[in-house]
Design a protein around this nucleic acid. Sequence first.
DNA 1: TTTGTTACTGCAACTAAGTTGCGTTATATT
DNA 2: AATATAACGCAACTTAGTTGCAGTAACAAA
Lengths: 126, 126
Amino acid sequence: MGIIRKTKTVEILLNEFNKNEVAISAKKLIDSLGNTINKTTIYRVLDKLEDDGVLHSFLGKDGLKWYAKCNGCSSSKHTDMHPHFQCLSCGKVDCISTNVVLPNIPNRQIEFSQLLIQGKCEVCCA
Amino acid sequence: MGIIRKTKTVEILLNEFNKNEVAISAKKLIDSLGNTINKTTIYRVLDKLEDDGVLHSFLGKDGLKWYAKCNGCSSSKHTDMHPHFQCLSCGKVDCISTNVVLPNIPNRQIEFSQLLIQGKCEVCCA
DNA sequence: TTTGTTACTGCAACTAAGTTGCGTTATATT
DNA sequence: AATATAACGCAACTTAGTTGCAGTAACAAA
């Protein structure tokens, strides 16, 4: 079940995702908002926003959970299937809006895929 | 630094990877061998075998660490860059020996990539 | 505006994967 | 056999994420 009441916590968290384009890890949200909002609440609101199709989640290079705003997803169907890029220098994660060409795998039924590309971002490249 | 002495633990672990074709998670090795070998030792030997280019590691769908035998890797260079397939029904993970076509990302320097495809394996499809 | 239902929150305690420090054991070299 | 040290076991720790429960607040209805 998703978000039903527009609480202060929901507003604060949505605001975090609106002011930056990049993805944000649950850990970072707890680090920056943890003395305002309880970490349990942060995890729960993120989970519900994902259920609603407002955010999508994926795992970063260390297995940490990251969230980013969805494009064209609804609560019934997450259509987002794009790759993510994580910078090995500064740790920043971006959504890459390019379609992934999946390899042909015989006799298997593909349901999801996650592609994490790692390297140096445009800032850390220079 | 990699493996220097051929101990009983190294032999047992390598044997696990030789009898099956599939990847094995660190957790599963601890579950099955944990009363014979200490879990710290399992983690350390896996780590060293990866340093040596004997195994490669990647993260499964829950962020758990998985290991599988390498093909054509050395201690100096891990050339393996293939996708992995994890079955959502039985949990099995396989290496897919197909090259991945990475999307073109301007102004970024790509160093690694990991593609995890999820769905139903050939056994669970039927 | 007040009341009442219940979604939401905070707290504390917990779970589980993986790590660290250190004293002991065992491999391999001389 | 002696010895240097890689490898091991144990216990305690770290940390991301979860659970149960009691208290709080959002919101609809009166």
